[in-house]
Nucleic acid binder design. Sequence first.
DNA 1: TTAATTTCGAACTGTTCAGTTACAATATAG
DNA 2: CTATATTGTAACTGAACAGTTCGAAATTAA
Lengths: 203, 203
Amino acid sequence: MFHNAARPRGRPRNFDETDALEKATQVFWSKGYDGVTIDDLVAGMGVGRPSLYSVFGDKRTLFLRVLKAYAEKKGALAVKALLSPRALRDSLTGFLRHVVESATEKGSARGCLLECVAPLVDDAEVQEFLQNAVAAAVALVEGRFREGIEAGEIPSDFPVAVRASLLIDLARGLTMRAQIGTPRRTLLRDTEEAVDLVLLPRH
Amino acid sequence: MFHNAARPRGRPRNFDETDALEKATQVFWSKGYDGVTIDDLVAGMGVGRPSLYSVFGDKRTLFLRVLKAYAEKKGALAVKALLSPRALRDSLTGFLRHVVESATEKGSARGCLLECVAPLVDDAEVQEFLQNAVAAAVALVEGRFREGIEAGEIPSDFPVAVRASLLIDLARGLTMRAQIGTPRRTLLRDTEEAVDLVLLPRH
DNA sequence: TTAATTTCGAACTGTTCAGTTACAATATAG
DNA sequence: CTATATTGTAACTGAACAGTTCGAAATTAA
């Protein structure tokens, strides 16, 4: 008899690795990095202490993995919001709306792991990862602006790089406001304004 | 013989309270709140452990005091930058330049205690304080915009409240970029762009 | 000089924490 | 059914930590 899904030999795990990782995300997201103890993770992930070490390594290693999974997921959603075939304004609004909505989601921590938690982690690898993530986000928005130019939605002298950078700054600002408790509807209102602003032609 | 500066009775302290508080600010600023131990503070402030407790209370109490002193200092500088008698554009540029410069000061921690560290502190009093600080900052910028309208520097239909909020969002974004290591000159360049943007008339 | 007062330095105490170990539980292979 | 492999549970260990205590040091008051 063959097992196509090569079932491992010993006692099976009673947790799902991906699921545990998502739970770890919530723990770091809500308590910060330094504020989290291994016991918090054990409790939050539903994984035994020795399993946690053997499967995920120590806190730093786990955090890096959480960070990468989170960024990938968030990045994919940003791509989806920005690169769907619709008007430029709608793309940007969709992007910022998604940012605000995920930062104010009920049942989840406020703010954003990448913007509020990770920047405070005193670790070279984390910092480098963040810088790349920000650069990627800016490049994505830049790309969308260039498409907008080709489609004639904005003038050809539109300052693509600068505005992309500023849009990301605005997104960060909105996220930080979510972190300190500004209500979702306020942020959603300002989302519209931010898009208006960032699309204004220069003189 | 009278002592006009009513010298207290016992052994004199060998630290200056204000100075120690500034050192504590640097400690929290560079290590975050949860990342700081009492020993870090003892080492960084040059104050003995028992003195620290008797003079400043526990970590939370000390942090609240640090936070308030920091906000007061920062607020005063913001007022100075925004309310000096000069052109609106120069006021705003001065404000953002100050934000960027203090977030990228060499010899000091990067970013901003109020924007990068405090929002992660899981404490109701801290959160409330931050919300008020943000509201005050927005109100300050709003006031400056209104002066600009009176002086005819911007049109009377200029969306004062919205733009003030967005300018603060931009400041937060710039600060967070400083935190993750974006160089000062990049941020200063974007400062100019941010002011240009926020002053654009609406269509 | 002596008494009273306050701070300083060092050591102490009970707690929390990270990481490990020992053993029981649960599975497969033959 | 037995041997082997892997996970889960609980408890252990040494280090780090918060907050306190105690005696020595430094000052004023009398």
